[in-house]
Design a protein around this nucleic acid. Structure first.
Length: 563
RNA sequence: UGGGGAGUCGCCAAGCGGUAAGGCAGCGGAUUUUGAUUCCGCCAUACGUAGGUUCGAUCCCUACCUCCCCAGCCA
């Protein structure tokens, strides 16, 4: 976690400016942030932005970041989610130390503060139905009307509120509301609900409570209790800020002289992706994907299984910055980050995923010869391994063209190409099936051109990868692609119609023998193809399954597309 | 036509009255047994629009335009 601090030193954004000012002016003496997810789903790349922001600020300013679950709605929350959230934050590379909290641990205090509000005439028990409450709330352009229960006495409110807690009422019968201003132009200030009755089992407090506090109230108080200095959330909470301040100022919740302040930043929007928790849950529950950790999911567990690294994701978060402007980041930025990270850490291996037989006519049948391939050409210290050369080999179908366009410098009739780490071969003839499809390419090799032999004087423009047919191992390979075909799925129509029918393609490919021992989550660069990871769930000892994380940049594909 | 926000290069994003950082993408070139990587170079007389204040404005003022968020007993 100490890497890139120099590179990060110049990073600035409006939140860092606020912190700098607060620190310089003595408003705060240190930085305490928090990451407050609700345990009702799995974390996704959008949460990573928030995690990197909050934990990154704590790290860079020598403060701390609390991990806190905003678990105020028992019907949506579950320990399955808290476990995975904790695991994902840890995996991303952040550490909350001793500071793991649950808003539900504050229920008793929040309850006390609520009685305090009632005693001060700042909260009342309302007995309107949800529908009636909505009607009286008014609209965006018109003020609301006060509830007939708004004038109940302190004693009556107190008694009713205690009976609510005691479980004497059914769900929805009463609610505790803040007494603020039904005519406020800010709808959040029109006597917001503070507590509601929910006879539901809570993942942590069990059946201790049958009333649960609302987010706005709970969050502000939780921040104050934990002495959070900078409470950073997303833009949609901007007009909740007056309520956040109201809760802190009207309640004896502060344990120190200073109080937390809320700041809002723009949430992440990623093209060709969906980051709505509700929709992600739907994808999982309707089996449109294979679970939360489906490698096509933008969830942290999905990205992990896809082969993304914490470093790559953090690089992405650093790269996109933080501001208040609504913005869309193209997924290619994410993809480029993982390439950049893997480029310097993934060992190189050879695989042929769309095989075409190549026969070397002048190489003796039944023989093979050792060739050596470096584990990473840019890091010779990592050594090399043997790749056998033989008469019959597999090459990538894309690397041969019978009638190539201009600029194609791979194998073609009469042309030469280097078999990487092996010999230069020349295409002399073709085998075809009845339909005219090429079934095998015949070549001759030049014995003087062996890589590393010292006799390889000649150079040719093209170099392709290959695998001796008799030695190649077969592996299941999953070629993943974007889950959606449009930049903003679900905007023009139902997102299900925007799904990419080819987002997952399972094939059987050939790989070199060294791949047999790949351990789950081990990442490789399959030369000239892309980055692949041994699947963490379906790989078996000696029988890894590979997921394509991302392809290599392909300027030839771009060239071809231009025409 | 209520309230709260945002508009700086294709995509992000600095800038806080003194004459437009940086990243990504793109483009050109070099190197290359990955059409990858790496390396060099280029890439906003311009900051939503129109006025105004000022010696000077992306930064201040006025008006307008566009986009986003808010009427859960969700977070």
């Amino acid at each position: 976690m100490s890497t890139n601090t120099a590179a990060r030193a110049h990073v600035t954004n409006f939140i860092r400016n606020i912190i700098d000012t607060d620190l310089a002016g003595g408003k705060v003496k240190g930085v305490v942030t928090r990451f407050p997810p609700e345990p009702n789903g799995y974390l996704h790349i959008g949460h990573a932005k928030s995690i990197c922001l909050n934990f990154g600020l704590a790290r860079d300013y020598g403060g701390r970041c609390h991990m806190r679950f905003d678990d105020t709605n028992p019907v949506k929350e579950d320990t399955e989610y808290v476990d995975s959230i904790l695991d994902s934050v840890k995996w991303l590379g952040f550490d909350w130390g001793e500071h793991l909290y649950y808003a539900s641990d504050y229920f008793e205090k929040i309850y006390e503060f609520s009685e305090h509000l009632i005693k001060n005439g700042k909260a009342y028990v309302d007995s309107l139905s949800a529908d009636e409450t909505r009607e009286l709330r008014g609209t965006l352009t018109e003020g609301g009307k006060e509830s007939p229960y708004r004038t109940r006495s302190v004693d009556e409110n107190l008694a009713l509120f205690r009976r609510m807690r005691a479980g004497e009422f059914a769900d929805g019968v009463h609610v505790l509301r803040a007494k603020i201003d039904m005519n406020s132009p800010n709808i959040n200030m029109r006597d917001p609900v503070l507590w509601r009755i929910r006879h539901a089992h809570h993942h942590r407090t069990g059946d201790k409570w049958c009333i649960y506090p609302m987010y706005d109230f709970t969050h502000a108080i939780s921040d104050a209790i934990e002495n959070i200095t900078h409470s950073i959330c997303t833009l949609e909470f901007e007009d909740h800020r007056p309520l956040y301040d109201w809760a802190i100022e009207n309640t004896p919740c502060r344990s120190s002289a200073s109080r937390p302040h809320q700041y809002e930043f723009a949430r992440l929007n990623l093209s060709y992706t969906m980051l709505s928790k509700r929709k992600l849950i739907e994808l999982v529950e309707t089996n449109l994907v294979d679970g939360w950790d489906d490698p096509r999911m933008p969830t942290l567990v999905g990205l992990r299984r896809r082969g993304y690294t914490p470093e790559g994701i953090r690089m992405f978060c650093d790269r996109i910055g933080v501001s208040k402007a609504d913005s869309w980041i193209d997924v290619s930025v994410l993809e480029e980050c993982i390439r950049e990270d893997l480029e310097h850490r993934a060992l190189r291996r050879i695989a042929v995923l769309d095989p075409l037989k190549l026969i070397i006519d002048n190489f003796p049948e039944g023989q093979s010869e050792e060739c050596f391939a470096p584990n990473d050409q840019s890091r010779p210290e990592l050594g090399k391994r043997i790749v056998p050369f033989a008469r019959e080999i597999w090459i990538e179908r894309d690397d041969f063209m019978e009638n190539p366009p201009k600029g194609f410098f791979r194998l073609q009739p009469g042309g030469e190409v280097r078999l990487r780490y092996g010999y230069i071969v020349k295409c002399v003839s073709l085998d075809k099936d009845g339909a005219g499809n090429v079934t095998a390419v015949h070549c001759t090799y030049d014995p003087l051109t062996k890589s590393g032999s010292g006799t390889e004087q000649r150079k040719v423009k093209g170099a392709i990868h290959w695998l001796a047919a008799a030695h190649a191992q077969q592996f299941e390979v999953r070629l993943y692609d974007r889950l959606f075909t449009v930049e903003e799925p679900g905007t023009a129509r139902d997102y299900k119609q925007d799904m990419n029918p080819h987002s997952k393609k399972i094939i059987s490919g050939y790989g070199e023998a060294a791949l047999v021992d790949a351990k789950p989550e081990e990442r490789f660069q399959f030369e000239r193809l892309g980055y692949f990871v041994a699947d963490s769930k379906d790989s078996k000892p000696g029988k890894p399954v590979f997921n394509r994380t991302v392809g290599l940049k392909d300027s030839w594909a771009k060239e071809k597309a231009k025409g």
